[in-house]
Design a protein around this nucleic acid. Structure first.
Lengths: 209, 209
DNA sequence: TAGATTGTTAATCGATTAACAATC
DNA sequence: TAGATTGTTAATCGATTAACAATC
């Protein structure tokens, strides 16, 4: 299995390739992608070779072909269905996130305990928690986003596991526990991200440290 | 300078120490922190030694003392002021984020181009963009969060630089450009995070890959 | 003291980069 | 062909882990 940072780079190559395609480029060299993403050309080629993505010696990579292959690795060759649990600001932000529209990522529904949030008619409808399991099974949803307050996150997590969710993006600042090793959890802790930023600003200001 | 992942671990040690403190622990061993955060005890001690954080042989680390030192490294020994530009769902989510309340992270204001968002009386007031530079200078704000649509992000970034902001957390899915090497930018791309999750779910389902 | 844990050094591991033969 | 770029191997670099002397 490849490391997280390698996959993050593949996403960046894909985004760079999309930009170049919109500029009417037909092919791209490892050197172009390196410049666009801030890595070395060696690393671009190494990353590609690890996934069997190949180009033409002397001719670089055909952008369309490259995008097809990158999208396949990143699971963007088919629709990936997500539900969001917790339709507060963060959850609503995910539902409305414009970046997902042209991608194969679709937020198919939200769930909440607050009846004032329910809305069965919306494009991405919001349902009560009771209906979560049935919805996930009927619609074969594989992914869940946890955007509830921290005290509710563990319980929501367990419901997602029971419903058969395979992958979870967790915004709550707690470490979710489960003995189910089949589920993949990625945590996005906003406080941690900010602490990281603060550290790098502070050490930049004081280069002596 | 230390790497990003090392600082992320320090945040996790801090969070684990806080939990143990709330359980009335007075001291903690590298082994406890390792268990709580999923790393090795060696790594905990190595990380600490790199920042001059020391404990007592045989006696572990005094939690209060440890927290003081970790908070100092992470810049949480003093109030860090943030502004949010773009008060949509994501921006509003950051302003209301409960995790910041007990920390030294404070979102002091929001800025938007939409007059319906303005609110000078709120706890975290929202102002028009025109007032950004003056506000930042008057209030000595060091950090900015960009939560505007991608097409507006570069312009907002430039205004933040001109205003004297030192660090930026960018939610917009573009690579911000600047020749000012003093500003620190961290990007948080939600689509990339999701692609990463999808990849690890897919490779788990197909262990042959 | 005996035992346990730190702090640090050395060994290992993995990821990145450099170099270059293959080849289009 | 001559020249340029890939794909891959080998070298380097950095980060993690193991081991253990110091010591509380």
């Amino acid at each position: 299995m490849s490391s997280r940072s390698r996959i993050l780079r593949l996403s960046r190559y894909k985004n760079a390739a999309l930009r170049l395609k919109s500029l009417n480029f037909l092919k791209v060299f490892s050197d172009n992608l390196a410049d666009a993403t801030g890595v070395t050309a060696s690393q671009v080629r190494k990353d590609f070779s690890l996934f069997g993505i190949s180009g033409n010696r002397r001719g670089g990579y055909q952008i369309d072909e490259l995008l097809t292959q990158l999208n396949k690795v990143l699971g963007k060759d088919k629709l990936q269905k997500f539900i969001v649990v917790g339709v507060g600001n963060m959850g609503r932000g995910m539902i409305n996130y414009p970046g997902f529209i042209k991608s194969e990522i679709k937020i198919v529904a939200g769930f909440d305990i607050d009846p004032s949030k329910y809305n069965r008619k919306a494009d991405a409808p919001v349902f009560p928690m009771d209906e979560l399991t049935a919805f996930v099974k009927t619609n074969e949803v594989e992914f869940g986003i946890i955007a509830v307050p921290d005290f509710a996150a563990q319980e929501v997590f367990e419901r997602l596991i029971q419903a058969g969710i395979k992958g979870v993006l967790n915004f709550a600042p707690i470490r979710l526990k489960s003995d189910n090793t089949d589920i993949v959890v990625h945590n996005l802790n906003l406080e941690t991200e900010i602490e990281n930023l603060i550290y790098f600003v502070n050490t930049k200001v004081n280069p002596a440290e």
